[in-house]
Write a protein that binds this DNA or RNA. Structure first.
Lengths: 349, 349
DNA sequence: CTACGATGCCTACCATTGACGATATTGCGC
DNA sequence: GCGCAATATCGTCAATGGTAGGCATCGTAG
C-alpha cells in the first residue's frame, strides 16, 4: 500500500533519491543513504513491481508451459523436480515463475503467444516430448526467448535434454555383461525423440557386442503399465523369447513385471527387466526395478540458466545434455544358464 | 510491441475509445466498435498487462505456495493435479498462476509476504499439511486473501481439505465387512491434521462394530516406504498380530506389502493391506493396492473458487470438504478363516 | 433556435525510473 | 581571503501503456 512517495516524504527526500538508494546507484551522500535505508528498513518498504515492470519494459516473469497430455513420458514427479530446478535458478535472477498448462501442444503454443503479447511473461520454458516445430511456427507471431526441455531440431531453439542415448547404452551394456544375448524392447508408437535416442543407445551397445536388435523383439506400448503388460506378453509369446526386457519407461516396465508374475516367471532368475526414468515407483516394485535415472532438477535448472543467457542476448551452444545414471536393482540378474549354454556363452558370475 | 496508441491510430480513433471497445464498455457506436474490433482482430493486439495492472491496482496473479519438504503427505502427482485444478478455475477469471516453492513453511510465509508487498500477487493458495498458525502470524504483516489446502483452525483462514475422516471410515468399514477384527494401523509422528482425521475415521468405524483400536497395533512411520516396511514388521511381530494393516498413506502401504512378502505372507489371503491417497503407484503394486482416492483436481479447483470469493469480498463458509472414495483392489480380502473361527465370526464369502 | 443525448476526444492518473537541471559545497588560483 | 569553477548531490519532470471520467461536438428533435 505505501508508495515510494510516502516513504520519500518520511525520509525527507525526493522519490527519485529513494529510488537511487533502492537500486544501489551512486550520487547519494552517505548520510542521506543511511537515513533513507533506515526508513526503508523500518517500514519494510518494497517497491511496487507493477510500476517497476512498466518502466523496465519487462515483466520479470518466466513462463513454464506444460502440455500435459502429450504422453506420459514426463511423468508427474519428474515435472515437479523440473519446476524446482527452474525456480531455483529463477530466484537468483529475481524472476518469478508463471505456470501454464494446456491440453495440447497447439493450445500451449497459442497460450504462450497470448502471454507474450500481453506482456505477462518475458519468455518461456516449454516441456515438450514431441515435435516442437508447430510450436515454433506459432511462436513466430511474437518472437521471444524460449527454451525447450526435450528434443528440438538443431538451430531452431535452445534445448535441454537428458542423455537418453547414454542411459540406454549403459543399461544395455549392463544386460550384456550379465550374459543376456536376446533382448526384448518395449517402445512406443508414436515415438517421442527421447525414445529414438534410447533405441539408438540400445543398438550401439548391441553393435559393440557384435549383435543386432531383432525387430521381432521390439514391442510397442503407450507408456502405460497396462500397455507394458500386453507388450511383455507379446514378447514372451515369441518362439524364441528374450531373456531380458528393456522397457523404455518405468511404467511399462512395471507392466512387464506383472506380465512375468502372471506367467509364473521369477525375476531376475527367469527374466530380467529394466526400465527408464527412475520414478518413485521403481524402487518400490517387487523386485525393485533396475532403471536409468535422470535428474529433473538439473534439467530444469539448466533450462532456466540457458533461458537467462538468451535473455542477456547470448546464444548458448544449444542442446545441453544432462547425464543419466544406471541404477542397478533387483530386477536384473544373470541370464538363465540353459539359454546361455544353448548359445555357448559363458555364464555371468 | 504495438501499443494502444498505435492500434488507435490504425483504427482512426482515440486510444480511450479503443480502450472502451477492449473492455466492452458503452458509449461507442456500433459502426465504430465494429471497425475497431476488426483492426484488433487483424493485428492480434492484446493490451499490455503491465500497464493494466498498474492502473487497476491489481496484478491478476494468484500465487501458489508449496513448502515442499514438510512431509510426503502431498505426494508429487497429487500436487500436479491440484495445480491443474487451480489453473482451470484461474483461467476463467483471467488470472495467471505464479508458482513459489520453499524449503520450509516459514520460508514460504516470508516469501509470500514479499510477493504481496511488492504487488506481484493479489493473494495466494497455500498447500500446507501442518500447522498454519505461524504462517498466519507472518502474514499479518500484510493481510491479503489466502486459502489453505489442508487443515486450519476454524475462523483463521478459509480452507479446503479432503474428507480424510470419511475415507478412513469407509476403508475401515470395508475391512470390518471382510471379517477383520484385529486391525493394525501405520500412522506417523509428528502427525499432520489429515492423519488425525483418518485415525478418527478408523476409531468411528471400529466403534460402530463395538471395537476399539488396540494401541499396541498402531505403529509409526515417516510416510516413506522404508518406514512402512519397518512399521509393518513391528506389527506382525506382535504376539497376536493383525489380520489387516491400514497404512495411512500409499507409500507406507507399499512398504507393508514388501514386509509381508519378505515374511512369506500371501496377500490378501494371509494379510490385507489398505493404503490412502491412490497415487499412481497404488494400482501397479502386486497385488494392486486397496486405497482411498482423493481428487487433487477438485481440491485445487475448489481452493481457487474460494480464493476468488474472498477476492470479491465474500466470506465463504470455511472448511470445504472434498469427498474421498474407497477403491477396493486386490490387496484386501476376507480375514483368514482360522483367526475368524477363533473369535467365532462368520467367514466372509 | 435551443436543448438534449449519443459519441468520441482530452487529460489526469497509477508508481517508478532516469535524464536533466538546480543547488550547494569544495577546491584552487590570484 | 575572496571569487570563480568544478563537482557532488538532490529535486523536477517526462515517460512508460492503459483506463476512466469529464468535456466538447455533432446530430436530431421539440
Amino acid at each position: 500500500m505505501p508508495t515510494i512517495d510516502d516513504i520519500a516524504r518520511l525520509a525527507q527526500v525526493a522519490p527519485s533519491t529513494l529510488s537511487k538508494v533502492l537500486n544501489h546507484r551512486p550520487h547519494v551522500s552517505r548520510e542521506t543513504r543511511a537515513r533513507v535505508e533506515q526508513v526503508i528498513a523500518a517500514t519494510g518498504f518494497v517497491p511496487s513491481q507493477r510500476a517497476r515492470r512498466l518502466i523496465a519494459g519487462r515483466s520479470f516473469i518466466l513462463g513454464l508451459l506444460i502440455p500435459y497430455t502429450s504422453d506420459q513420458l514426463f511423468t508427474d514427479p519428474h515435472l515437479l523436480e523440473i519446476m524446482r530446478g527452474i525456480e531455483a535458478e529463477a530466484n537468483e535472477r529475481e524472476y518469478n515463475l508463471l505456470l501454464s498448462t494446456a491440453r495440447t501442444s497447439l493450445d500451449a503454443a497459442s497460450a504462450l503467444v497470448r502471454l507474450l503479447r500481453s506482456d505477462v511473461i518475458d519468455g518461456a520454458i516449454v516441456v515438450e516430448t514431441h515435435d516442437v516445430r508447430p510450436f515454433a511456427e506459432t511462436l513466430q507471431q511474437r518472437p521471444a526467448p524460449w527454451v525447450v526441455i526435450g528434443y528440438a531440431p538443431p538451430g531452431m531453439v535452445p534445448s535441454v535434454h537428458a542423455d537418453d542415448f547414454g542411459g540406454a547404452l549403459a543399461a544395455t551394456r549392463h544386460l550384456l555383461d550379465l550374459g543376456h544375448r536376446r533382448l526384448g524392447v518395449i517402445s512406443s508408437l508414436p515415438r517421442p525423440f527421447a525414445l529414438d535416442e534410447r533405441l539408438r543407445g540400445i543398438n550401439a551397445a548391441l553393435a559393440e557386442a557384435g549383435l543386432r536388435l531383432d525387430e521381432h523383439l521390439v514391442a510397442t506400448g503407450d507408456f502405460s503399465p497396462a500397455s507394458g503388460e500386453r507388450a511383455a506378453h507379446c514378447l514372451l509369446d515369441q518362439p524364441d523369447p528374450p531373456t531380458a526386457i528393456f522397457a523404455l519407461n518405468d511404467r511399462m516396465a512395471a507392466g512387464a513385471l506383472r506380465a512375468a508374475a502372471s506367467r509364473g516367471l521369477r525375476i531376475p532368475e527367469d527374466l530380467s527387466v529394466v526400465g527408464f526414468d527412475d520414478i518413485a515407483l521403481a524402487s518400490l516394485l517387487l523386485p525393485p526395478l533396475t532403471t536409468v535415472r535422470q535428474s529433473g532438477y538439473r534439467l530444469g535448472r539448466t533450462a532456466a540458466s540457458i533461458f537467462f543467457q538468451c535473455l542477456d542476448g547470448q546464444a548458448p551452444e544449444t542442446p545441453a545434455i544432462i547425464p543419466t545414471e544406471l541404477v542397478a536393482r533387483g530386477s536384473s540378474g544373470p541370464a538363465p544358464p540353459r539359454r546361455c549354454a544353448e548359445r555357448g556363452f559363458p555364464r555371468a558370475p
